[in-house]
């Protein structure tokens, strides 16, 4: 059996331990070992942002993070944005403001957007810049930024 490393992390608020090969990507740990398939692989090269998760509150492309380097850290995936089964305010705004089309980039956008709200960034141009690591080919981004503005207006930044 090939070498394995032990990774212990706080995943969506729960302390979890995994035995993984040293080269395993965080994205594969999430999708294959933890069964959290909400994070998507669109490019495997850190370009598209569909696999974005929060690592200690900071959005990262999990396809470029070694699982082992998450040891001892806190990871939040799109599944972890929901609280008691309720959508995060930004997720809710994406739904009500028509910001979802094919849905493949959406989990990554939801995670990055939650981080933008948590940071208290209200300026739409700056929000667009912060979202520019998340490619979307369907929406043209208009309704995504509208959703950010909407959830900000509803105080989503205070709740996240």
């Amino acid at each position: 059996m090939a070498e394995r490393v032990t990774v212990t992390l706080t995943l969506n608020g729960e302390r979890r331990t995994f035995e993984v090969p040293p080269g395993r990507r965080l994205l594969d740990l999430l999708r294959d070992d933890a069964g959290l398939t909400g994070s998507k692989e669109g490019c495997g090269a850190g370009e598209c942002g569909a696999c974005t998760v929060l690592l200690d509150g900071v959005p990262v492309t999990s396809c470029l993070v070694l699982a082992a380097s998450a040891d001892g850290h806190e990871v939040v995936t799109v599944e972890g944005l929901l609280q008691a089964g309720r959508l995060h305010p930004f997720q809710d705004s994406l739904v009500t403001r028509g910001g979802v089309q094919c849905g493949f980039c959406t989990p990554g956008i939801a995670v990055t957007g939650a981080a933008i709200l948590a940071r208290g960034e209200a300026d739409p141009s700056e929000q667009a810049r912060l979202l520019s690591g998340n490619l979307c080919r369907c929406t043209g981004y208009t309704k995504v930024i509208e959703a950010l503005q909407d959830s900000f207006a509803k105080g989503g930044h205070a709740k996240s």
Binding site: K40, T77, L82, L94, G103, P107
Partner: peptide, 21 residues
């Protein structure tokens, strides 16, 4: 009108199963 798209909630929650899932 502008009622919610029927596929939006599952997609935004990450629970829509694409082929790779």
């Amino acid at each position: 009108g502008r009622h919610e798209r029927p596929d939006a909630r599952a997609k935004v929650a990450g629970s829509t199963r694409f082929v790779a899932d």
